[in-house]
Design a protein around this nucleic acid. Structure first.
Lengths: 352, 352
DNA sequence: TTGAAAGCGCTAACAG
DNA sequence: CTGTTAGCGCTTTCAA
């Protein structure tokens, strides 16, 4: 008569059969209860050292990995956050994601990523889905179409904290992290003026976005202060279409009253601007000086190297994520409505 | 005596109380069973049109969003995939993520993102965690340190399909999507030779990565075929440190036997190469011609515009994801070990 | 120090 | 067509 017969629950521990080991199987193998195993695995003080050791060893041997969703369901915590943003093929956002991921990984959190592609309806649908308990919190940078914030409010109301970054919305009561858009735009415009620009155009991307307006206002302030003439055609509204943007920038630079300075409010448009200048044989910086918001790694090897307002993208991502965790850890009720501003830096290069 | 008293389960439908509505609450409000509500919500043929309508209306009114994890737990499907890759602040990967996300969103799947930062131990830990049932499948691009593939095999064995993209591992039996690294490297090297380069250096990033070796071999073949002399110092092993890379490239270009052509195997190193050339006052393409693997959006406005081997990053992401879904939908057992090669294109610009 | 039992919210088989 | 029931795998009282 074998030992196995006497203790039918004690089977030789082996990982040869391919069924996914769950805590019940593990407990059976060990001749312990699920509860005990569960506690042992999380190193609970209630469990004896010997048992813990045995449990850990068996878990390792059987390659036991606890089911994430069972645990989430039970604990009502998902250890997951969502990042919702317009675009990832953009230096700013991809570096920001890096910052976000680094903090999340450090905290043992998982990161879900959702791209809105600047589509408000999609943003709404995504945030609505996130009420499902899938995530403990959300990091959001809104689309350029987002005016209304009800969808965000609803998500918060359903118990999911939201932290806004970069493209923030003032009206939402929560922590926000962004850069000093107004000031840095002002500084950049001033810089163009100092370098001799008398007619400065501004390339914008959105009428709704607070940060776009901040940048616009910073530019306007500088222009106004210096008493420069301001033609209405100097304000160029760009959008998501490269062809369209190329056309309007070309029109700007072909006009009889051509600007001699351009402030570009967003990275993508810098490329278009350079391309138009090349096509029109306009020399930067001689014919027209260009500065722009960007964190191009290639800024220094462009032709010519471009003066940039460099945003602290990584830090913005990190900070927003840390803030979110503070809220999740309930250490941060007082963080509601806190706005953290991480300054950009003007890096002067030969384009101005 | 009120109706409410007679039918205590019938409360007026309202969303005023803040408790998160679950299916039970919804069912109670409606005076139906959970099962019926569940079926009605998924438009089951078993349920009458009238009931469906009533249920849908109430769900909407109460802002009911089903708990994702309860449902995942029950169905043993997470509707989630993971993307595991070295880096996101890199044009190639960020565009690939775009492709991935677009297909996933279309299929109603969620995307978890994990960065390994070229760290093999991290890759192992991440893949191990993904045995938790958190995801239905994984898209993986390995670190440059990854030699061993046991961790991947283990994940597959635990029932999670893995599709490799870009940085693939031949030994793993699964679907793979990459570009024609060997051929395009060969073509680029040939191009340099046609443009008059007689001494071509190659900047590499990893000894393990299959794709790095493919690129290297393509280069070698071209050099060999054309009978060019091959100095061992023309093979420059770069790594993750910008300073180090700058130093070795500088050394290369300062050597008495300076190459007059450089093939750069990875985007980041292009910037360093340009910077070194600028610092040394070497003229591209006169003193040295440069071509590189890259999908820089700014390639055309560099000084000079750089000849690139342009990888179909978006399509690689899309294709890998579609393949993964085929496998998940069990339509793809025969896809095991299928390798899809999406060709890169050489875009000749003034750097050569 | 360990075990038993209840239940997170949902789905799916089976009954009615 | 609708209801009942039994779990998915885990954690957490509470009892022993």
């Amino acid at each position: 008569m074998s030992l196995n017969f006497r203790f039918p629950n004690f089977r030789t521990i082996s990982n040869s059969d391919m069924s996914k080991t769950n805590i019940r199987a593990l407990a059976m193998q060990l001749g312990l209860s699920q509860g005990t195993v569960s506690k042992a695995l999380k190193d609970s003080y209630e469990i004896s050292a010997a048992t813990k050791k045995r449990v850990m060893a068996a878990a390792k041997k059987l390659n036991y990995v606890p089911n994430a969703y069972a645990s989430s369901l039970r604990k009502k915590k998902s250890k997951t956050i969502a990042v919702v943003l317009p675009e990832v093929a953009d230096s700013f956002f991809s570096v920001a994601i890096n910052g976000i991921e680094s903090i999340a990984q450090q905290k043992g959190y998982h990161v879900l990523i959702y791209l809105t592609h600047e589509n408000f309806a999609k943003e709404k649908a995504i945030l609505n889905e996130l009420k499902s308990g899938r995530v403990d919190g959300v990091l959001l940078s809104v689309t350029r179409e987002t005016k209304n914030s009800k969808h965000i409010f609803d998500l918060q109301t359903s118990g999911v904290p939201v932290v806004l970054f970069d493209r923030v919305l003032e009206e939402i009561k929560t922590a926000k992290v962004c850069t000093n858009d107004f000031d840095s735009s002002y500084i950049a415009a001033k810089h163009l003026i100092e370098r001799g620009c008398t007619k400065i155009a501004y390339l914008s991307i959105s009428k709704n976005l607070a940060i776009a307006n901040e940048r616009l206002e910073g530019y306007k302030k500088a222009v106004r202060e210096c008493g420069l003439l301001f033609e209405k055609n100097f304000l160029v509204a760009c959008n998501n279409s490269e062809n369209y943007n190329y056309a309007v920038i070309k029109k700007l630079l072909c006009s009889s009253n051509r600007p001699n300075g351009i402030l570009v409010s967003v990275e993508k448009l810098i490329i278009t601007t350079y391309q138009v200048c090349n096509a029109l044989q306009l020399k930067i910086p001689d014919d027209v000086k260009v500065a722009g918001f960007s964190i191009f790694p290639s800024a220094s090897i462009l032709n010519p190297p471009i003066t940039t307002i460099c945003q602290p993208a990584f830090e913005i991502g990190e900070t927003a994520t840390s803030l979110l965790f503070k809220i999740l850890e309930k250490r941060g009720v007082e963080l509601e409505n806190k706005k953290i501003v991480l300054p950009s830096t003007l890096i002067v290069r030969s384009s101005t």
